[in-house]
Write a protein that binds this DNA or RNA. Sequence first.
DNA 1: GATGAATGAGTTTTCATTCAT
DNA 2: GATGAATGAAAACTCATTCAT
Lengths: 197, 197, 197, 197
Amino acid sequence: MPKVTVEHRAARHDQIVAAARRCAIEQGFHKTTMADVIRESGLSAGAVYGYFKSKDELVAAIADQALSTVDKLFEGILATDQPLTPVAALEATLEHVVQIAEQPGGDVTRVALQAWAEAMHNDAIAGIAREKYTLLRRKFVAVAERGQADGTIDADTDPEYIGQVLFALIPGFLLQRLLLGDVSPRSFSIGLSALLK
Amino acid sequence: MPKVTVEHRAARHDQIVAAARRCAIEQGFHKTTMADVIRESGLSAGAVYGYFKSKDELVAAIADQALSTVDKLFEGILATDQPLTPVAALEATLEHVVQIAEQPGGDVTRVALQAWAEAMHNDAIAGIAREKYTLLRRKFVAVAERGQADGTIDADTDPEYIGQVLFALIPGFLLQRLLLGDVSPRSFSIGLSALLK
Amino acid sequence: MPKVTVEHRAARHDQIVAAARRCAIEQGFHKTTMADVIRESGLSAGAVYGYFKSKDELVAAIADQALSTVDKLFEGILATDQPLTPVAALEATLEHVVQIAEQPGGDVTRVALQAWAEAMHNDAIAGIAREKYTLLRRKFVAVAERGQADGTIDADTDPEYIGQVLFALIPGFLLQRLLLGDVSPRSFSIGLSALLK
Amino acid sequence: MPKVTVEHRAARHDQIVAAARRCAIEQGFHKTTMADVIRESGLSAGAVYGYFKSKDELVAAIADQALSTVDKLFEGILATDQPLTPVAALEATLEHVVQIAEQPGGDVTRVALQAWAEAMHNDAIAGIAREKYTLLRRKFVAVAERGQADGTIDADTDPEYIGQVLFALIPGFLLQRLLLGDVSPRSFSIGLSALLK
DNA sequence: GATGAATGAGTTTTCATTCAT
DNA sequence: GATGAATGAAAACTCATTCAT
């Protein structure tokens, strides 16, 4: 009965990650104890350790999940054959970010923030962050290149630089959203539009 | 050692914060133990606890210090009577950020990142972050207003929105600098210029 | 070791209390460290803290146990339907006190003495002491009332007062026994008899 | 200038003991820290340690003082040539106890209670307690002997036993006073009188 | 496989005492 | 002598992890 077991295992795995994520959203990675996760997941200590060899591994899994949130963007709004202006690309991305943040189960972007901090001294998490964010930024480089191709963006500038700036607006939005709480995809796209005029 | 001057106390205080900061830069707030700080500071446990009642209080002090790093901007580049374009304001700010990051004693911006994460579940730190960042963002709102006044920026847009976008570039820069390591104030100002053209 | 019975838990609980009591008898509540209790109990730190959230809670448990020693009196000598004279009631009680004090495992009355001191600034312990001693004193009030009923004690006196006096002899005996070591239930009953003659 | 210094030293000594006693009344010997005593005394750490080599020595001094409270009885009510009945001796003693307890500066009898507990594992304090209480009890033995001499007490009983019983009423009173708070010298003398009738 | 009680190294914190000024 | 900052050993307590049942 391998299939059943595999599915069962996957379900358990997700159950633990979800529980751990809920804890991390509330209290952060470090104030969250394994006992918290065990309680929240409704499983036993032994069960949890059957899926994650250590707390570090579990933390990495939650961080990974939070950072991998951007993956869905690639299959959606930023799929390469759509001709997007910088403003449109940004607004679509921020709307996606907000949608993810508002999903039931708690605001994952808070976990992403933690993952950034963790990446400073955790190579596994740093690697994931680097990978995901390099990929996402590349999409904005592509947006810049397209703009240069159709003449709406100065063609003499390294599109990489333009991508850096456009990409920067995402963590910049996220931080303001979590810390100050007074930004929205709309306010950002309006603000950016005004600058580009 | 009685009759100690206020300066002496302040010096000791800073000595401890500096030691703690070095630890936090290396390992983060939470992997840093009080024993680490005590060893690094060259003081005794009792001495450290004479200045900070708990680890939490010490963490708050380091976070505060890291976030207060932006204060110097106000007395410098962003002093209100200089007519700065958005690009100039951004570049000056980012250069200041890099300069701070490269100061001997370790990259404080890594601590700022931790402070963001901590702010998610620590009201004291959240309060400081909110205060500092609101103030800094206001400077960029002022830059936008000046641009609107002299006709270089669309006057019909809420300058608050423009300030949000410009301010967003700072954490966006910082994160890319720490995570991807391939950005610079120059690349950012070039990228932003290209968009504004 | 999962699926542990309630009896097992109770046994562990008692094992810890017994160890702590032995320590408290030797060195008092305060000179006894958790490390002492842990060593004496043969368990680990974590195990002990699994049963008692703090040292204070453990101290309260030992104090409670020591004060609850008098409970057995109620089911024995002082059971209400036996017609006891004051002298008989006292002697029976003191004999019980001595018997308890001489039980293997150490003299619990030494712990009771500590509990009195502790009750001065520990409301939980004060509450228990008040409860137990009020109940015990009531038995002596009953003895007085019986004496008044059968004419052996002056009927015009508030039996409460007589109970106070009779009850006082118990801590008075205990203290002399522990401090001076030259009293016995016999010497007390002889002394009281002489006064009553 | 030895006399001035000696008096000054004595004053300082008492100032420290008084401060320590106030602390001990509030929180007990063990919860009282040297820092508490230092603060309460208004002196410096060094000064306090100039008078008492260690906390143990200071505790012994407070305990001694609290136990020595009974000394005044000998010069007063129990002075040997007064012909006292047991009831009169008891009431006078209890009145003295209450008067001492109600003196400004806090209820010293609470400290005496602590001293009893401490005596269980502190030989110095045990010695003092033994000495003082032996002496006090002897007074009650004398009262018994006088009663035997004038025929009011059975002459065939060892007066030592009678003294034990009478003396027992003092700690028994004290404990009820501190723990239950519903006894008085009057209620005790009435209760004892009733029994002796 | 699952359980969860038990482990014990490691952490934070306290506090009696000292000693440089 | 007096001061009180500093000391550091020792205390209370935590928590990731294991393993007997």
